[in-house]
Write a protein that binds this DNA or RNA. Structure first.
Lengths: 240, 240
DNA sequence: ATGAATATTGTCATTAAGACAATATTCATT
DNA sequence: AATGAATATTGTCTTAATGACAATATTCAT
């Protein structure tokens, strides 16, 4: 059965009759840890693609709005709700999968460490956070999708401060800088970065510091959502 | 028959067996004329949706790469090839069409007057260029798609000079300014606009002027594609 | 010669960017 | 208590970009 081959989410698969058999959803779920941008991958456990890594996905269900599908994937895979998700686009090369004609709608999601500290992959699924740079040789056209996600992400953080979705509620300036460096793929001048970041007024200094480090404790900041909403109207360009 | 209802392209419809029956492609085809941004619409000639206006579209064909589909729509509708096209996203609300579960992949295309001077709609189809502002009450969720296209377009011209796709090969500075004003939805200071546009070095002055006007003839410019490609690497922000 | 219509150009004050390195804290070690 | 290690934090100068302004120049038609 060709469809079994694509059974990326193994627990409690939907009945065949409930899904639109030629349409799937795949998600690039990003996280940021140890100064590395990571993506959540699943390993296929059976079928022709056994052992290969893939972006988590599902077939589109007949009775579900498309918008809900990525949240459904996230819910099943991580148990998380209320996650930042945006659509990337739809991929439909004729030969993109080696069985049948499956068109997939790609999404990306950003989740913060304090959320996924709940240990993804505690259940039976073979799931792992993988450094984006090391996520090569994915199944089907999933590398093409991931590459596209990275391009979009890089493009997006120039105009919207979505990077904050990847950080905990309180973070240090170094923390954000490392995040931007990881996303942009090059290092940034600390003085200029801080000047620009602080002048944007997106951050609010707290009175707390990060005491967990064995050197000068850095100040903790929070993200100012109101100011962010203002900036969406004004326009914004974070060129660095 | 529900599918007949969605038969947007009337001439030479594909056989049912050739299409993926739950997946369509819809296109926002933009043009710019008389300082107005226009979109190409088709009027449904039969079925429940008779008389209603819609974005042109088709069902996705089984044997065609997804990427080719919008070009197929453009080809059929206007006879044009090599048009600038980008995917907008995929729309899949459960109740987006009033029959069955159809998910649609939306694209937008930008075409320039010198191309569509060949009179779109010379054939039997009911097709018209409509000012975007006046394209209300479209069928299904097509207004939602068009609104989204406008948001994307506005966002896009801040980072990429795609507006040039809407202009003829030679154009005046006023011409571009009016285009930007139409896309952004507000007027711009001429001095500042010109300074910024010229300093970007995206334009090359020609030795020609537009003689067709009954007042001082404005200089004609061309678009510098090489410089454009450079800017894609450097990054760019056209905030006005 | 005049009026109509649009094209074209310049200044000044303020703000942002780019390039650059020294000092400050804190903890661990001796 | 002094030193070293590690990272946090801050400032200057020059140049470039922005925003807010209005006067002058051309051309054609009358």
């Amino acid at each position: 059965m060709p469809l079994d081959n694509y059974q990326e989410i193994l627990s409690d698969p939907p009945a065949k009759g409930r899904m639109i058999s030629n349409l799937s959803v795949d998600c690039c779920i990003f996280g940021f840890e140890n100064n590395d941008l990571k993506v959540l991958l699943v390993q296929h456990a059976s079928g022709r693609s056994q052992g290969q890594w893939a972006l988590p996905g599902e077939f589109v269900l007949k009775d579900r709005n498309l918008k809900e599908m990525p949240h459904h994937v996230l819910q099943r895979l991580t148990g998380l709700e209320n996650i930042f998700v945006e659509q990337l686009g739809t991929f439909g090369r004729l030969d993109r999968v080696d069985y049948g004609r499956i068109i997939t709608i790609a999404y990306y999601a950003l989740i913060s460490p304090q959320k996924y500290n709940l240990k993804v992959g505690a259940d039976a699924l073979d799931v792992a956070w993988v450094n984006v740079a090391e996520a090569t040789k994915l199944i089907y056209d999933h590398n093409e999708i991931l590459d596209y996600a990275m391009i979009k992400l890089r493009d997006r953080i120039k105009t919207y401060p979505i990077g904050f979705e990847l950080l905990p509620d309180k973070f240090t300036l170094t923390h954000i800088q490392k995040l931007y460096e990881a996303m942009l793929g090059h290092s940034l001048d600390t003085r200029n970065f801080r000047r620009k970041m602080l002048s944007s007024k997106l951050l609010q200094a707290t009175s707390e510091v990060d005491d967990s480090v064995p050197y000068r404790a850095p100040k903790l900041y929070t993200f100012d959502k109101e100011r962010y909403d203002e900036m969406l109207v004004e326009g914004y360009f974070f060129q660095l």
